[in-house]
Design a protein around this nucleic acid. Structure first.
Lengths: 212, 212
DNA sequence: TAGATTGTTAATCGATTAACAATC
DNA sequence: TAGATTGTTAATCGATTAACAATC
């Protein structure tokens, strides 16, 4: 499979396909058509077919795609096969929830450890360590960590982000509701709950108006 | 301010503006220009100006927008002023983290209570109650709740979603990594961590290739 | 063969950016 | 007044959808 330029829109839909494909029962046909996938996920079938064409080397007319290979192709494309190590900064409630979430393994993410300016505990239930922030740099260097997850309060987010970059981190997953200033070669992905809330809130407002 | 049709793209950017405007120091000019706002958030100034035109009744050439009014206008547009009550289903780590997060108030969200099939505790530290799931419907009816937050394990998400809809909920904030089937008038907003991870992972892959 | 499905090429749609006129 | 800034109209860009040819 040759690697084409992929758009962000397509990229964001791929995890949904792989999640659904994985959830399918082993029994039944080993094949799945774009038509079936589309209707299961409430999407357009042309869109699904085009998306799959980006990552798969082809389905068979009249039959569809071999489910197993399709999963593998998407997983490989998304890099789920080679695990990414990450550090998490801010061992508050959200931080600890993420640290303890075992589901990330299925997406190729492995959070090695958490760091906090004031660690209340030394270890979490699942055995992942929580260190003092002063140990961040040596840890990142020693483990060649390239991803950082920010779950500190908003007012500390930028300074933590700067520290992460100084430690050699190249990608930041930001849960603090604030814009982070970073050099051009660093990627910040905001997990923006406020954005989701805006969409939900707008729907409810529209819903109320209708009723009047 | 007349209410125009707003696109989802614009809607999703609005919370970012209001967050930045709120974070600005009270000292200094009471005005802010679209130019300044754009550069602070790393965006195009034309885009910011167009977005603001959707919700504000105008800035003044050469001066900009009155910061206070701009905040109010966006807040009102997003419905931050009249609080939305919500219930949360699934009092695991993530659920409790969200339940305890005080920051939602600034976005007009108020989580009234959590529900769980197997509540390990009765109350959280912040005094928000955790009830048995059997009490969901009467609670939602009594409090006219219209938003539900799903933080249960994937395999229970659809059934919880169905229950919420049966309770009269109109908008669902879904943290389970799965597609939910709902009637046409119900909105599901997926908080899709897998999507964010895909974007981050792709950036790291590209970064590694460059180095070779 | 006929028909379901794939994959591609063209058309449409929506969102962003650029150009420019209006204004204080 | 001159210039910074707003707001609008036109052009570009990208993504989705529709139409259609290819295939098993």
């Amino acid at each position: 499979m040759e690697r084409k330029e992929i758009s962000k829109a397509v990229l964001k839909r791929l995890p949904g396909y792989v999640a659904y494909l994985r959830s399918m029962p082993e029994t039944g046909s080993p094949y799945i058509s774009a038509t079936a996938l589309a209707s299961a996920l409430g999407m357009g079938e042309v869109q699904v077919r085009k998306d799959l064409a980006m990552v798969s080397d082809g389905g068979r007319p009249k039959i569809g795609y071999l489910r197993e290979s399709l999963i593998e192709d998407i997983e490989q494309f998304l890099g789920y096969d080679n695990t990414t190590d990450a550090v998490l900064i801010g061992a508050g409630k959200l931080g600890q929830a993420l640290l303890g979430y075992s589901g990330f393994a299925a997406y190729g993410l492995n959070i090695l450890a958490a760091f906090d300016a004031n660690p209340s505990v030394e270890n979490t239930e699942d055995g992942k360590p929580i260190y003092h922030i002063s140990r961040l740099e040596s840890f990142c260097r020693a483990n060649k960590v390239r991803m950082g997850i920010i779950t500190v309060p908003t007012q500390h987010a930028q300074s933590v982000c700067d520290q992460l970059i100084a430690c050699g981190i190249k990608a930041v997953w930001n849960f603090a509701p604030t814009h982070l200033e970073v050099p051009a070669n660093i990627l910040v992905q905001n997990e923006n709950m406020a954005t989701s809330l805006a969409v939900l809130s707008m729907h409810l407002q529209a819903h109320m108006k209708e009723k009047k």
